[in-house]
Computed example of a mutant assay.
Amino acid sequence: MWKPHARAWQAATAIANPRGQEVTLTREYQSCPQCGYSFFPLDEQLDLPASGLMPHAHQSLVRLGARLSFEEAASELHALLGIEVSDSRVRRQTLQVGASVQAIQTEQANISHASSCGSSSPQPLPSRLAMSGDGAMVPLRGGTWAEVKTVVIAEVLPSQPESTEQASRRTTNHSYFSRLADATMFADLASVEIARRGIESAEQVCAVQDGAEWLQGFVQSHRHDAIRILDFAHAAEYVGKIHEQAQQTGQRLPARWVSVLLHQLKYHGPVRMLEHLHWLSQRRDIPAITDALRYFGKRLPQMHYPQFQAQGWPIGSGMVESANKVVMQARLKRAGMHWEPSNVNPCSPCVMPSVISAGQKSGTSSNSGKKKIVLLAESSAANRDELS
Rank of each mutant, 00 (worst) to 15 (best):
R252Q: 03
L253I: 00
P254F: 03
A255W: 01
A255G: 02
A255E: 12
R256E: 15
W257R: 00
W257Y: 05
V260A: 09
V260L: 12
L261K: 06
L261M: 13
H263P: 00
H263T: 10
H263N: 15
Q264L: 09
K266F: 04
Y267I: 05
H268P: 03
P270W: 06
V271R: 15
M273R: 05
M273L: 14
M273E: 02
E275F: 03
L277S: 08
W279E: 13
W279G: 09
L280T: 07
L280C: 03
L280W: 05
S281M: 01
R283L: 11
R283F: 05
R284T: 04
R284N: 00
D285K: 15
D285H: 09
I286R: 03
P287S: 07
P287K: 09
A288H: 02
I289T: 08
T290V: 11
T290C: 02
D291K: 11
A292L: 09
A292F: 04
L293W: 01
L293P: 01
L293R: 02
L293G: 06
L293F: 05
R294C: 04
Y295G: 02
F296W: 14
F296T: 05
G297Q: 12
G297L: 08
K298L: 10
K298S: 10
R299G: 11
R299K: 15
R299A: 14
P301Y: 14
Q302T: 07
Q302A: 15
Q302E: 15
M303V: 08
M303S: 09
Y305L: 09
Q307L: 15
Q307K: 15
F308V: 13
